[in-house]
Design a protein around this nucleic acid. Structure first.
Length: 953
RNA sequence: GGGCGGUUAGCUCAGCGGUAGAGCACUACGUUGACAUCGUAGUGGCCACUGGUUCGAUCCCAGUACCGCCCA
């Protein structure tokens, strides 16, 4: 049987995948021959997700580690699964319902809606799993987990422990007081009408405006406003009856509770403690607010005075809390100006009393939005507010000068000062709408109380983060951690296990019955909110292993070995898993976190739909095969760097797949078979390649052990292409006819087997295919033995000899090419001088040299007319190329070589003649330098001799 | 503003104490028992800049410039 000319990836991948699956090749513990375990938890993709290039990189790297360990006989588990992705999934299903013109979720109710999501999950939720399989991911698919498994309402087939685990942890943390409910300022997504965590907010710079307004002092009071320069010289002195305030959000002025200045700001010292008027709202109910001091305002920014709207800005919230300023909510859940609560007149009256220092209690019902603005979108309200203030003459203005071009007449006009300037604005990472800080009741995890062990575990090395630069990022975030908002006003998720009675008392229990038992005779209502998706995925390592049940899997596979993930979810996920696992089971979730980069396009730009530069991994798989894509991603996965990927790169590696395919094909055509034991050949060439194989194996093991995936890939590439194909296969050709034919067949078969095995973790499909084609095997390669080869297989003499032979062949080829000798012409090879080692190498490898250098059998002789010179360590050769040799060209060629060698030799000479170098450098280095110099001098001498001869003719 | 990276061949990137490597691109040959998805031989680099440490610096340290990313 002859093999095809190239590997048919599409056909083979499907066939091989099916066979792996049929044999349960990826099951936990499959191929285990030792007791050590190796566990990897997949970062669960969103159930709504489809495979993007980041998944391809992430899962290729995991698969490499997993396949490598499985072949080494570890008891290996790669745990797959999916995340229920609260907001994203609810969004997808709602959109689909809208497209089908079905009634909305509020119409059909919570239960029916979640049932629809489960339906959707059954139909479409498996997309990404199938895509991961196409990539060759060797997860134990029979254990596929889901973060909503076992939730009430889950259909058959979705039983599981995850819901139990989540609820149990919530109850436990609630009872410890680590989870609490509170009214705090949170990020509010007006599109989804839910709270989100600070991590789900993206701050983007957008064009905005800064308005400057005058807040008049109460009762028409005035003060002396003095500005000074850095030296204390007065630059401005005037009497003012106002304080100037800058804001990017004028509509929030309605909810101001104070004006704050820095305690050291001398300009405002005279008026601190006085009241100012907010220049908006109906004239008859103008509100007064106090001027206070706080560290927050920056005296050098704007006027140095800041309006404080505690309910709509995080910084202001801090100031308000420190100074007892009331928090007046102005907007509703859709971020429209509130229309509920008390009338403006009543509200303003209460607020005024509060400003005068009176305790007015809860201000939730106080609605400081004037009646004419109620219900308006906040941007419309902003326009109206600005217009009103400007009309009243309370905008800070500047003098605008216009010159009529014809008459030259000047027109002076005061215009309101509106600075156009970029501002940082928060956006929901899912909804894309502007996030509003809103004062709402939410559930929080008091992260400060559980962060300690997570920091400690990384500090003391129980968990190692690679590359190390990410440790700092991890520390930085955890050391400044904020309370985690875990409640979401959604329906898809784990509902919070807390019930309230008529008086609002909380009962936290795993089930309603248990809650009821805690509140006999009371009517209970369950908290409608669900938990942040990351709360459940934070339990991924133990949840997927069956916790809270004390399962065998948990005992065996936890803690896991390595988490492979992108840096974008270090905070979202990695840090939270650390905190939660340590709090819940008292152990680290993983021993190593390997953080890879973000795949970018060829130009280094982030891939995004809007830019249209997204590369679909499956398109690349279709075009070039999964192995080529995997190899490409691996070879670019240098630690701490972002891979830049283009189709061209994948094409190059597809060529590599073809290369090894064809080398195998050549071997097969020459009767080479795999499956044999390691031969103990006599011929130098065979001894040499066995040593080289051991060398690359050791390098590959070391690279993989230290997560230098790119080194593993590029090393194997260089070995297979550069050593095996370029040299060994070529050397073997003449040997297939002679006395070493059998050992050469055996050696080549063995070497190729080692190549298949070493490449398998990176390129599982083509290697599995070649493995099957080259011998009858009792196991598939996925369960093959990882090679174990040591340095004792490196034969120093064979190494030296083959390197010499290669140098000679390259020397001859180079000389021929440069002198324009036709490639087909076979030349005589005259040995003009050779030491013993050179003679031995020549004798042992004659046929190889003849074939690869295209020369006749070497024969002793003298250099003469019409010959070109070639020099190798310990030997000189002459090649007659005919009478019409271009002496000038040959002289130039040799001179160029001499010059280069001389330059190198001079450098070495200079080093060796420096006494400090000889004194201080390591003995090895000095010896090495001497040897290099000697070799160069030998080379120079030979070349010069050749030049002398050339000149003499 | 705080933190973290990067700057090496025309391009994309490795290397990170002993005077530079790969792939692509480019040039010239080429079908020699697998491979043109190929082979052979070449061209191409003050390793951003300025100081310092060292016998020796692309590599370590400090600073400068430019380019990114994360967090406020």
């Amino acid at each position: 049987m002859t093999m095809d000319k190239s590997f048919d990836a599409a056909a083979a991948e499907a066939r091989i995948s099916a066979e792996w699956e049929r044999r349960n090749a990826f099951a936990a513990g499959a191929n285990a021959r030792r007791s050590e375990t190796f566990t990897v938890m997949i970062p669960p993709p969103n159930v709504t997700g489809s495979l993007h290039i980041g998944h391809a990189l992430n899962n290729t790297l995991q698969d490499i580690l997993v396949r490598w360990h499985r072949m080494r006989g570890f008891d290996t588990l790669w745990q797959p699964g999916q995340d229920h992705a609260g907001i994203a999934t609810q969004m997808v299903v709602e959109r689909r319902m809208a497209e089908r013109q079905e009634p909305g979720r509020r119409e059909i109710g919570r239960e029916a809606f979640t049932a629809k999501i489960w339906d959707w999950k059954r139909e479409s939720g498996g997309t990404i799993i199938n895509q991961l399989k196409r990539l060759g991911a060797s997860c134990d698919w029979s254990r596929n987990a889901f973060t909503m498994s076992g939730a009430p309402g889950a259909p058959a087939g979705e039983e599981g422990n995850f819901h139990d685990a989540v609820i149990r942890v919530f109850v436990d943390l609630y009872n410890k007081g680590i989870i609490y409910r509170g009214k705090r300022l949170v990020n509010w997504d007006p599109h989804f009408e839910t709270a989100i965590s600070d991590l789900e907010v993206e701050n983007r710079e957008v064009p905005g405006h800064m308005w400057h307004f005058k807040y008049p002092l109460a009762g028409g009071e005035t003060y002396e406003y003095v500005e000074r320069d850095a030296d204390g010289n007065v630059t401005l002195r005037e009497t003012r009856d106002y304080i100037s305030i800058a804001t990017t959000r004028p509509e929030t002025m309605l909810g101001d509770g104070a004006v704050a200045v820095h305690p050291s700001d001398a300009r405002y010292a005279p008026i601190v403690g006085k009241l100012v008027e907010i220049p908006v709202g109906p004239k008859e109910h103008r509100r007064l607010i106090p001027i206070i001091t706080d560290e927050y305002p920056d005296p050098d920014f704007g006027s140095g005075a800041v309006k404080i709207t505690g309910a709509h800005d995080f910084n202001d919230y801090g100031v308000a809390m420190r100074n007892g300023i009331p928090l007046y909510t102005l907007m509703d859940g859709k971020a429209r100006m509130r229309a509920d609560g008390l009338s403006y007149a009543e509200s303003a009256a209460i607020a005024t009393r509060a400003a005068q220092g009176e305790d007015v209690g809860d201000v939730a019902a106080v609605n400081l939005v004037p009646e004419d603005l109620r219900g308006l979108d906040r941007l419309e309200a902003r326009r109206r507010v600005v217009d009103e203030i400007t009309a009243e003459g309370l905008a800070v203005t500047y003098l605008h000068k216009e010159i009529e071009p014809e008459t030259g007449a000047e027109h002076l006009e005061r215009r309101p000062m509106i600075e156009a300037k970029p501002i940082m604005q928060p956006f929901g990472d899912r909804s894309g709408v502007v996030i509003e800080p809103m004062l709402t009741d939410q559930w929080f995890v008091d992260t400060a109380r559980i962060v300690g062990p997570a920091l400690e575990a990384v500090r003391d090395g129980r968990t190692q983060i690679l590359p190390e630069q990410h440790r700092k990022v991890y520390f930085n975030w955890l050391e400044n951690i904020e309370p985690w908002t875990i409640s979401r006003q959604l329906w898809w998720g784990h509902q919070i296990p807390v019930w309230y009675d008529e008086d609002g008392n909380q009962y936290c229990a795993p089930t309603e019955a248990e809650a009821q038992a805690m509140a006999p005779g009371r009517t209970l209502t369950r908290d409608p909110d669900v938990l942040d998706t990351w709360f459940s995925s934070g339990l991924w390592p133990i949840g997927t292993l069956g916790w809270p049940e004390p399962t065998e899997a948990l005992k065996k596979y936890f803690p896991t070995d390595v988490l492979v993930t992108g840096f974008d979810i270090i905070f979202f996920w990695v840090a939270r898993m650390m905190m939660m696992q340590l709090e819940v089971v008292g152990d680290v979730p993983f021993r190593t976190v390997y953080v890879h980069g973000l795949v970018r396009d060829e130009k280094g730009a982030k891939m995004s739909k809007s830019k249209g530069n997204v590369i679909d991994p499956l398109t690349l798989v279709d075009a070039y095969g999964a192995d080529a894509l995997r190899f490409t991603l691996t070879s670019m996965a240098a630690m701490g760097r972002d891979p830049k990927l283009g189709p061209k790169h994948v094409e190059v590696n597809r060529n590599f797949v073809t290369k090894i395919w064809n080398a195998t094909r050549f071997a097969e055509m020459n009767g080479v078979r795999g499956g044999g034991a390691r031969p103990q050949p006599a011929h130098t060439v065979n001894r040499w390649i066995i040593g080289e194989t051991a060398r690359i194996l050791m390098a590959t093991d070391e690279a993989l052990a230290s997560y230098r995936f790119n080194d593993a890939a590029t090393g194997l590439y260089a070995f297979v292409w550069g050593k095996v194909c370029d040299w060994y296969v070529e050397f073997a050709k003449p040997l297939f006819d002679g006395e070493h034919a059998e050992e050469t067949r055996a050696t080549m078969g063995w070497v190729l087997d080692q190549c298949f095995a070493m490449l398998h973790p990176i390129m599982p499909f083509v290697t599995e295919e070649l493995w099957a084609l080259t011998a009858e095997r009792d196991r598939m390669l996925v369960h093959g033995d990882w090679p174990e080869l040591g340095a004792e297989l490196i034969d120093a003499e064979a190494d030296r000899q083959m390197n010499w032979v290669i140098a000679l062949i390259e020397g001859v080829r180079s000389a021929r090419a440069q002198m324009g000798v036709p490639a087909g012409a076979k030349l005589d090879l005259i040995v003009t001088e050779a030491d013993e080692a050179a003679r031995a190498a020549l004798a042992a490898n004659g046929p190889l040299i003849e074939r690869l250098a295209r020369v006749n059998a070497p024969a002793d002789g003298a250099a003469g007319r019409g010959m070109i010179a070639v020099s190798v360590q310990g030997a000189s050769f002459a090649l007659p190329i005919g009478d019409v040799i271009d002496a000038a060209a040959e002289t130039a060629r040799l001179q160029k070589a001499v010059q280069k060698s001389r330059k190198d030799a001079e450098g070495l000479q200079r080093r060796l003649s420096n006494p400090k170098f000889v004194e201080n450098a390591e003995a090895e280095v000095i010896e090495e330098t001497r040897e290099k110099l000697a070799a160069l001098e030998d080379d120079i001498a030979r070349l010069e001799a050749a030049l002398v001869q050339l000149a003499a003719m």
